[in-house]
Amino acid sequence: MESSQERFEYLKSKNYTLKLLHEELGRDINIQDPLPAEPVLAEQLLCSRSEAREAIIILECFGYVSCRSRSNNIIVKNFNEPPNETYQYFKKLYDSSEDFKKFYISLDGKYKEGDNLPGERVLAKSINFSRQKAHELLVRLECFGYLDINHGKPCKVLSHL
């Protein structure tokens, strides 16, 4: 199993928006500073708002950002430091987020390593979530090393769910 550092570097290598965001914020932002809003980040990084949201979710999974609904996201760790081990965040998320828990349980035991997941729309419909919510939860599972997501291709299971 790869380390969180290796996983984070892999995600940065395939997600240009995440790479840019990590580099840009590492220069100009301090711990406890608010993260610019998604539309502002998208404009600054010349990407879509959903790409900015995905990069923020990944930064949260690795302990750099604290995401808050209906409030500013906050920088909680220096971007020059190595990422946190994701199992701590996984347990916290599983214990505190009913949406994540429901999504994870809906997949648990149904797919083994090497399997392809159904599309986001199918997954979302099966558990009565929006496609956007399903995508955000899939991104989190990718951060934890369970999935590999490549746009335009099925999500591949890397580790038994």
Rank of each mutant, 00 (worst) to 15 (best):
N73A: 14
G119L: 10
G109P: 05
F129P: 07
E23L: 04
E9P: 02
Y16V: 01
N128K: 08
I149W: 08
E24G: 08
S4T: 10
L25Q: 12
D108H: 13
L11W: 00
A55G: 02
N80A: 15
K112W: 13
D115W: 06
D28L: 13
R140G: 01
P82E: 11
N150K: 11
Y89D: 13
L138R: 00
H151M: 05
F79N: 11
H22V: 01
L138S: 03
K19G: 00
P83W: 05
E43W: 06
A124L: 03
L46W: 14
E113S: 13
S4N: 10
L59M: 12
Y16N: 01
S126C: 07
P83H: 06
F90N: 14
S69V: 09
N30R: 15
P83R: 04
D95I: 05
N116H: 15
I127M: 06
I56A: 07
E6P: 02
N72C: 14
N78V: 11
T17P: 03
L35R: 02
G63I: 03
E43C: 03
S106Q: 03
N15S: 06
Y146W: 04
P39S: 15
H160F: 09
G114F: 05
G109S: 06
A42S: 00
Q44S: 14
A124I: 02
G114Y: 00
S159A: 10
P34G: 14
R27F: 07
V40W: 08
L35N: 02
L21A: 04
R121L: 10
S159G: 04
T17A: 02
I29G: 14
Y16F: 06
I56S: 13
S126H: 15
R121A: 13
R140H: 09
S50D: 12
E120I: 11
I127S: 00
C143A: 01
E9M: 05
R68F: 14
E38D: 04
S66R: 14
K102Y: 09
A52K: 05
L138I: 03
L117N: 02
I105R: 05
L158T: 02
N116R: 06
S48I: 04
S97P: 11
R70Y: 13
N116K: 13
D28Q: 13
L35D: 14
L93R: 15
K102W: 01
K77W: 01
Y64W: 10
V122R: 09
E142K: 00
D95M: 12
L161M: 01
K19H: 07
L20W: 09
D115S: 07
S71K: 15
S3T: 10
K133D: 06
L123G: 04
K91E: 14
L117R: 02
G109H: 12
Q32P: 05
Y104V: 02
N78T: 15
Y87C: 05
Y111C: 00
